[in-house]
């Protein structure tokens, strides 16, 4: 069973703040993420008898030239490992993770997010405690109440369980769970377990980190309350929770992008829900 690795990669465009000359800055995505995680109480120091925190730092990076290569281009990535089993009644800490990522990105520049990839350590969740966790998520959904209706965004979502086919049998139930519970963050319109092309985002994550390569997947189409890391974090936590509840016990690679014709290329703005 893989370690409880949680990873996200952001794809799109990044305009650095003019005062951040790459040749002279002394901070980077890694150090900023460590600093912010520590300040917010999310970081578990890598030392004996460390207390507190949710994740331990693994790695992070900012791609030097996002404009080259494949489209959309990766602009940054962040990797942590959960330092505790997720407590009963709690969802995966993806919201905090992406909030921290959002803070870091805002520190570096102005990002225009086109797609996000998140490795979800679903194996760290215990199916028996998912009733409590979904209630926690419903409470968290209050953050998105009264969002600007014009910011609602059509999204395409892929959940990939790699070499393990479990996502296929769970897909219908996962979608049903998004409809069963009363929330307005995400509304699923349709899904499929075959036929849709995979979203190709480069570079690919090492297979050994998550039971890859990408193979067994389901695709969902729906509406997200807003195109922000905050809403994406909530969606990711909810889908991880639902997947666990319906029998998935291995890592999932979640990919979300905006569907054509939606409010595309919204700038990442801390006030949009991921900055606090």
């Amino acid at each position: 069973m893989p370690d409880s690795t949680m990873l996200t990669a952001l794809f799109g465009d990044l305009a650095l703040h003019p005062w951040r000359d790459p040749a002279v800055v002394s901070s980077d995505a890694y150090s900023l993420f460590v600093a912010r995680s520590s300040a917010m109480g999310w970081l578990t120091s890598a030392e004996e008898n460390a207390s507190g925190g949710v994740w331990g730092m693994n790695d992070a990076g900012q791609d030097p030239d996002p404009s080259s290569g494949s489209q959309p281009s990766r602009i940054a990535w962040f990797q942590v490992s959960l330092t505790e089993p997720v407590p009963g009644g709690g969802p995966l800490p993806v919201q905090a993770f992406l909030a921290c990522v959002g803070d870091v990105m805002a520190r570096i520049g102005t990002s225009r997010l086109q797609a996000v990839q998140i490795l979800l350590p679903v194996q760290s969740l215990a199916a028996s405690s998912r009733v409590g966790s979904v209630m926690t998520l419903l409470q968290d959904a209050g953050w998105f109440v009264d969002c600007d209706p014009d910011q609602r965004t059509q999204v395409r979502i892929t959940l990939d369980s790699g070499r393990i086919p479990s996502i296929h049998s769970a897909a219908a139930d996962i979608v049903e769970r998004t409809r069963e519970f009363k929330q307005d963050v995400f509304s699923c319109h349709s899904f499929s377990v075959a036929g849709d092309e995979a979203m190709v985002l480069e570079p690919a994550v090492t297979d050994e980190l998550w039971m890859g390569p990408a193979h067994h997947r389901t695709t969902l189409h729906g509406t997200l309350a807003e195109w922000s890391l905050g809403a994406l974090g909530w969606l990711a936590a909810f889908l991880a929770d639902a997947s666990c509840w319906h029998g998935v016990s291995t890592p999932l690679m979640l990919t979300v992008c905006q569907s054509e014709g939606s409010n595309s290329n919204t700038d990442l703005d801390p006030s949009a829900g991921f900055g606090g």
Binding site: A46, Q79, T206
Partner: peptide, 18 residues
């Protein structure tokens, strides 16, 4: 002295630590 947790790299099949 600071370090992070040894982990599998996301870009190569190797253990890594900073």
């Amino acid at each position: 002295t600071r370090g992070d947790y040894v982990h599998v790299s996301s870009s190569a099949f190797e253990a890594s630590g900073h």
